[in-house]
Amino acid sequence: MLMEYLKVFLVGGVICSIGQILIDRTKLTPARIMVVFVLMGAILTAFGLYKPLVEFGGAGATVPISGFGYTLVAGVIEEIDKIGFLGIFSGGVKATASGIAAAIVFGYFAALVAKPKLK
């Protein structure tokens, strides 16, 4: 149990640290960092490299935004296996639908009540 959580911490921590190196060394803006991670997640999944990471690190690999790329590609592949060609288009959004909907709805309501403050 403890070992499992240590693995989660390690994988998640390392992924975030890669992001930090990108911020400090390349001056990439946060929006670009997120795009880089999603693309990396998608590409690594395509080559079958991200799945082992998820099996090893669990949430450590799915909670970072690269996990979004993984879920998208894994969803597309699963759906193609199930229904064929149409799965290319429907699989990704289907697999991530709840996350996106949650982000939109929570985002909307949070914005309704909140007020910006001086940092």
Binding site: I23, D24, K27, T29, P30, A114, P116, K117, L118, K119
Partner: peptide, 11 residues
């Protein structure tokens, strides 16, 4: 720059 409530680091 970025929105005020966005959690980012300044150099």
């Amino acid at each position: 720059r970025m929105p005020l409530e966005h959690g980012n680091q300044k150099t």
